[in-house]
Amino acid sequence: MPEIIRLAFKYKLWPNRKQEQAMRNFSGCCRFAHNALLAQEKEEYQEYLEELESRLCWGEALRKDEAKALCVKPTLNQYTFN
């Protein structure tokens, strides 16, 4: 089995005040976008659970295409933010 060699580099940033503020703004925007998408996904999941519960309570059968539409939910991934 071949030996794996891993290299790592550490960098230290010394931004000035303007650059530091720009980095804080960028990370704040990323955090806001992530939290908004996460809240949307949680809301959609709750709607999904409510729909399933209501159908089970009323004894309604799901057609195959309805079940697929209910079960397929978008998930957060690295491409969502693009």
Rank of each mutant, 00 (worst) to 15 (best):
N35L: 14
N35M: 10
N35H: 05
N35C: 08
N35V: 11
A36M: 13
A36Y: 11
A36I: 12
A36T: 15
L37M: 09
L37K: 05
L37S: 02
L38H: 05
L38E: 06
L38V: 03
L38I: 03
A39K: 08
A39Y: 07
A39R: 09
A39Q: 09
Q40Y: 11
Q40H: 15
Q40V: 13
E41F: 07
E41V: 07
E41L: 08
E41D: 11
E41Q: 15
K42V: 09
K42E: 15
E43A: 15
E43H: 13
E43V: 13
E43I: 12
E43R: 15
E44K: 10
E44F: 06
Y45M: 15
Y45R: 15
Y45V: 11
Y45P: 09
Q46D: 10
Q46M: 09
Q46Y: 08
E47C: 13
Y48M: 10
L49D: 04
L49G: 01
L49S: 02
E50I: 07
E50Q: 14
E50T: 11
E51T: 01
E51N: 01
E51G: 01
E51K: 08
E51M: 05
E51I: 00
L52M: 05
L52K: 07
L52H: 01
E53G: 03
E53T: 08
E53A: 12
E53K: 04
S54L: 07
S54V: 04
S54E: 10
S54R: 04
S54P: 02
S54M: 10
R55V: 05
R55E: 00
R55K: 11
R55P: 00
R55T: 05
L56R: 09
L56C: 05
L56P: 02
L56K: 08
L56M: 11
C57K: 10
C57E: 04
C57N: 12
W58S: 09
W58F: 11
W58G: 06
W58T: 04
W58V: 00
G59L: 00
G59P: 00
G59D: 00
G59W: 00
E60G: 01
A61K: 03
A61L: 02
A61N: 04
A61F: 03
A61S: 07
A61W: 00
L62F: 09
L62N: 03
L62P: 02
L62C: 06
R63W: 10
R63P: 03
R63Q: 14
R63L: 11
R63V: 08
K64D: 01
K64G: 00
K64C: 01
D65G: 06
D65K: 07
E66H: 04
E66M: 08
E66D: 09
E66K: 02
